[in-house]
């Protein structure tokens, strides 16, 4: 590990060479490489996260470039996971970036997530978030949720002990909300916060947004923090505290 690259990490209060080694040993999966992922991915890779996976089945489209600043115009038509991995390898060749050019689905979610310590949700739909929530609970993995729309974005961190995503967002809605306009830097801003939260989690630094929904409204403008608790009747995590009976001999 080239220490010089991480000089400004190592100058942080509480950040030691051991902290940097923890980061080098960490494995983070970023699901979705769009507006949020374009901010999360470079900061994780630049900071020295040892292994970063990218799950994304889309190809780069010209309409993405207004906010998905990880890509360049010549990338149009290229699978996002591959283009992202190529750009990120140039940013920091000391770490590993693994593209998964696929869509996260019930059939592959557990197998993909099992190889990582932390999941960062940069997807663009609620169904995948339900899947991440259930899979992370099954595998006891923490994850960082964020979503953006128009001038608005929010972020919260979910740990296996709860509360879970379903405790706050409840049952699936009948229909996905249609794609809305999005101010590019709002996605970047919230994605940067996800990277901050991920690095804090991986290095054990500071207080995490567990049970807190942090909201940014660019029009008002400002941050606002809302709190939520584990729902004992939650259809997804509500029964997780019931002890599992011992297996019969």
């Amino acid at each position: 590990m080239m220490v010089e690259r991480y000089t400004r990490n190592l100058g942080l209060p509480g950040w030691t060479p051991e902290t940097q080694r923890r980061l080098a040993a960490a494995r983070v999966l970023v699901v979705g490489a769009g507006g949020l992922g374009s901010a999360v991915l470079p900061y994780l890779v630049a900071a020295g996260v040892g292994r970063t996976g990218i799950v994304e089945d889309d190809t780069v489209e010209i309409t993405n470039l207004q906010r998905q600043v990880l890509y360049n115009t010549p990338d149009v038509g290229t699978p996002k996971a591959e283009a992202a991995a190529r750009h990120l390898a140039a940013l920091n060749p000391e770490v590993t970036v693994t593209p998964h050019h696929t869509r996260l689905a019930p059939e592959n979610a557990a197998a993909i997530l099992a190889a990582y310590d932390l999941v960062v949700d940069c997807t663009d739909n609620l169904a995948t978030r339900q899947l991440i929530n259930r899979t992370c609970l099954e595998l006891s993995k923490p994850w960082i949720h964020a979503a953006v729309s128009e001038y608005y974005g929010h972020i919260t961190t979910l740990r296996p002990a709860g509360p879970c995503w379903h405790c706050l967002f409840g049952p699936e809605t009948a229909a996905e909300p249609p794609p809305s306009g999005i101010l590019g830097p709002v996605a970047g801003l919230i994605g940067c916060l996800q990277a901050v939260e991920a690095l804090k989690y991986l290095t054990g630094t500071g207080r995490l947004l567990v049970g807190k929904l942090l909201v940014w409204d660019a029009l008002r403008p400002g941050w606002e923090e809302f709190s939520y608790r584990k729902n004992p009747d939650c259809a997804v995590c509500g029964n997780r505290n019931i002890p599992v009976p011992p297996a019969a001999d």
């Binding site: 979705g32 769009g34 507006g35 949020l36 992922g37 949700d121 940069c122 997807t123 663009d124 739909n125 609620l126 978030r129 964020a146 979503a147 953006v148 729309s149 608005y152 929010h154 967002f169 809605t173 996905e176 909300p177 794609p179 809305s180 999005i182 996605a187 606002e224 809302f226």
Partner: peptide
């Protein structure tokens, strides 16, 4: 009172 819609964008 604060009211939020489903927000799915990423």
């Amino acid at each position: 009172v604060a009211a939020f819609p489903p927000v799915a964008g990423g």
